[in-house]
Simulated scan of single mutants.
Amino acid sequence: MIFLKTIKIETLADLKKALQTAIELEHATIPPYLTAKFTLFETGNDQIANLIGSVVGEEMLHLSIACNILNAIGGSPVINKPGFIPIYPGPLPGSVEDGLIVPLEKFSLKLIHDVFMVIEEPEKTVPIHNNSFAIDKKLTIGEFYTNIKKIIRELEAAAKAEGKTIFVGNPNYQMTFEKFYDTSVLFPIVDEETAIRGIDIIIDQGEGTTTDPFVTSADDGNVPELAHYYRFEEIYEGKTIQPDPAGGYMFGEPAIPFDPKLVPNMWPNPKMDDYPKDSQAYINSKFFNYNYTSLLNSLHETFNGEPEKINTAMGIMYSLRLYALKLLAIPDPNNPGYVAGPSFEYVVGE
């Protein structure tokens, strides 16, 4: 489990700052998850790759919800700046204090257990037979979002007492994307009710509830699906989670096998400037990072008054895989026996 330092959220300015932190935190999980998924391409591990991909899609949804809420209260999401991307390996944004270092690495069960499950672990896990974890009580990501809900309610109540509202943002800035996200999970944030509903979706998809590892149907487009932590737990255990006839939940069939034989041996935490400038690794790393920077610029425009730019952003997102796969097929010029990999860096002036 990752923990956040206590964040003061008392004023509207504090709330805007907290939502920007939430945007950065949701985004920061995407590069490590995508890197692991890229390394599973055509390795015979499609089931695992699809599970990771489903989490990536929902992290993008959570980022979108946080941006919509920030816009709704008159803020402006900032996505296209170098500091928006964390340094890998390193902690996630939001003053994470528990020592978790998040890398960009090839897929492995150790990465799933030691990093991805730690990122997504809720404040209280639902025991799956033969598997449980001890929990320390600190400020978790779920509690961070719960605090945001609390201050939204308090600030809106105070505003209404004066005949006002904190939801003063331009409704035309709200982004929905029905081609990818059902309107039941991504919708315009226009008032307290829709803001709270959006945050509840983030919490439920990420953590589930204290009694059920599955996401509430209404919070997941009416599709039965496990919360993120439990999807990663299935991958690690190599089995699916299902109801136990005797009560609770258990691991069972079908299995989720992992075959490591064809996973490319990517050098961990690559950096574009570490490659020789005339190498294929550098050239393709530059192409990858140029596209990644273009993606962030398009997302910034999307959430700052041009919601139709989400179509451009999604097109660029799919192109990232092309350059990632090219990198994973190129020997690392600095490390014999390894291949290059995506570094997810913001490039300026390119």
Rank of each mutant, 00 (worst) to 15 (best):
K8V: 01
I9Y: 01
E10R: 07
A22I: 11
I30D: 03
P32L: 10
T35N: 09
L51S: 15
I52Q: 07
G57D: 03
L61C: 00
L70G: 07
N71I: 12
A72T: 12
I73K: 07
S76V: 12
V78H: 10
V78R: 13
V78T: 11
I79F: 10
N80F: 08
F84W: 06
E97R: 03
G99F: 05
E105C: 10
K106L: 11
S108H: 02
F116E: 05
V118M: 09
K137H: 13
L139F: 08
L139H: 02
T140C: 05
E143C: 00
E143F: 00
Y145K: 04
N147K: 14
A157P: 01
A159E: 08
G163A: 08
K164Y: 04
M175D: 01
M175F: 01
Y181G: 02
D182S: 14
V185F: 10
F187C: 06
E193P: 11
I196W: 15
R197I: 13
I199G: 12
D200Q: 14
D200M: 14
T209G: 07
T211K: 15
T216C: 02
T216I: 03
V223C: 07
Y230H: 09
R231Q: 09
F232Q: 02
F232S: 06
F232K: 00
G238F: 07
Q242G: 01
Y249R: 01
F251A: 09
E253M: 08
P254W: 03
I256W: 04
I256C: 04
K261M: 13
Q280E: 14
I283Q: 15
N291A: 13
Y292E: 12
L296Y: 03
F303R: 02
N304K: 04
E306Q: 11
N311Q: 12
Y318M: 13
A324M: 09
G337H: 06
G337C: 10
G337L: 05
A340C: 01
G341A: 06
E345Q: 13
Y346H: 08
V347N: 02
